[in-house]
Design a protein around this nucleic acid. Sequence first.
DNA 1: CGGTGCGCTGCTCATATGAGCAATCTGATG
DNA 2: CATCAGATTGCTCATATGAGCAGCGCACCG
Lengths: 311, 311
Amino acid sequence: MEEELLMVRVAELYYDEDKTQDEIGALLKISRWKVGRLLTQARERGIVRIEIVHPRARRLGLERQLVERHGLAAAIVVPAPDGDDGTLDRVAHAAADYLTAMRPVPRTLGVSWGRTLRAVAEALPDGWATGVTVVQLNGGVSLNRRSGGAAGLAVTIAQRASGHVSLLPSPAILERVETKLAIEADRTVAGILEEAAEAQAFLFTAGPCDATSAHVENGYLTASDVEELARRGAVGDLLGRYIDTDGNIVDPQLDARTVGVDLARLRGAKRAVFVTAGAAKHDIARTVVTNGLCSVLVTDENTARALLEEQ
Amino acid sequence: MEEELLMVRVAELYYDEDKTQDEIGALLKISRWKVGRLLTQARERGIVRIEIVHPRARRLGLERQLVERHGLAAAIVVPAPDGDDGTLDRVAHAAADYLTAMRPVPRTLGVSWGRTLRAVAEALPDGWATGVTVVQLNGGVSLNRRSGGAAGLAVTIAQRASGHVSLLPSPAILERVETKLAIEADRTVAGILEEAAEAQAFLFTAGPCDATSAHVENGYLTASDVEELARRGAVGDLLGRYIDTDGNIVDPQLDARTVGVDLARLRGAKRAVFVTAGAAKHDIARTVVTNGLCSVLVTDENTARALLEEQ
DNA sequence: CGGTGCGCTGCTCATATGAGCAATCTGATG
DNA sequence: CATCAGATTGCTCATATGAGCAGCGCACCG
């Protein structure tokens, strides 16, 4: 259309050449109001594209939609760069920013573990808060306080806030229920689980239900265990607990052998910050969000879109 | 820098969320003037990128620079899409637009030939002008008035302007000088050459000096002829005449066997429209432009940059 | 032929924005 | 510690812009 060409000319003069709408009108022999209208149309039609190019950019529009649609307290959505690389980093940074800005500062922060949370820990600057006690929400891998395992992650977060850390000295999943009960009966463990359950804020991720799961990697489950769980409807795990799309525990037997706070704690929490990135976790992310298992969601644009499209 | 993050937040609220600078100031607890300044900086630093996405978009900034730097009457620069495909089409369209808008409408228009000009001819809409006589500037290939050869191109342009066409019934380059002189002595040929030389506007392209040249393709020259020309400093041809970077004829002997108007005519012309696209022609384009062989340049962004970067 | 309603135009006026400037802060230097 | 240059801030005021509205032309339909 001829009108469209005019939009292009007007947009060039306005945005590239910094002319006023008046000047453009004079130049193209149209009224300045028409120039204004053409500009509006050009933006609407996408002829003029305005984008914010920055690793820390956000998608406020998607955030708002997510909050409305899923009744969240907040949502943080970062753009996914073209190559998909760096997405995790961006999400992690965004989560770190959110934690840093969170008011009131929680006295105790419950954390889970995983690659995503490790990235968040690394993204937190020294002094992101002061005096926050970090407590593990579920059983971890190494008991070494050095970086590397789940413990290291919690330690890092605590150190950078000049705070304390309460590690949960237990495997994630035990072989027998009796062992699990015995461990929970231990006064230290019980104390920590108590502390974790009462944490003022939670920070956690979820894992997909496939062979890449951290549980398989760490030997708590075998690839075939996970396959079986998936067959029974599991879409992923949260604090080591495998759930289906309705948010229900898939295998109560397995769950009874899993050490960590109950998912009910997340459901009730005012500040349950769920961090997720990548297409592999879209399903579990949907489950978490639609079942009210988090109040704050930090994710990437693609995940956000996936969470908004259905229904 | 912390300031930079603020720019990002401000830019998001302003451009994505359509908030006023006042509102943003209130939201972020900074004065509205600071908001304005942050926005300016964000644009300067390229955090906010505004682009005009349209096949007919132009690069007015580059156009202005070209006009200034090389003393042109006008320059038309189109963005080069990522895949480089479609660039020729865009340039051709832009040339067609320019011709259509050219005032006063030339009574006679001299044209050369080549793939680029063919694209221009195809891009001209029916009725782009009325009553323009199109005359060939140099010897062509087929004398068939149908589309395909150089003749068809001129015919197309004329037809779409409801005008006449004067074809130059001669090969581009002859084997012997005597033959060339004999052809030029022919009254028809002489008349057309006269008409061409007096044309009120010229429309032409240039070819690179390599085996892809249309002259090789059409058998006027062999690949080794072209190689030899290149060795002697030729960067390409204009109306069949091979020139070096200083705009001088490389091989006077060859030139004496070439039928068509003299390059001097272009140099003096007020409306010599040179159309070029693609990296292969950067060198010859530079030669044409720096030696004043055109007054109007129609090209793509990359060529424009190449013409601006040196010295 | 005469409505009648829709879309486009150019206006008025309120608001948003940028230029320019004085006040203030910062931090380097003697 | 005093001083001063340079940056940064928040202002005033002129200008640019968008919202909303009345007038106009045009196509459609009775």
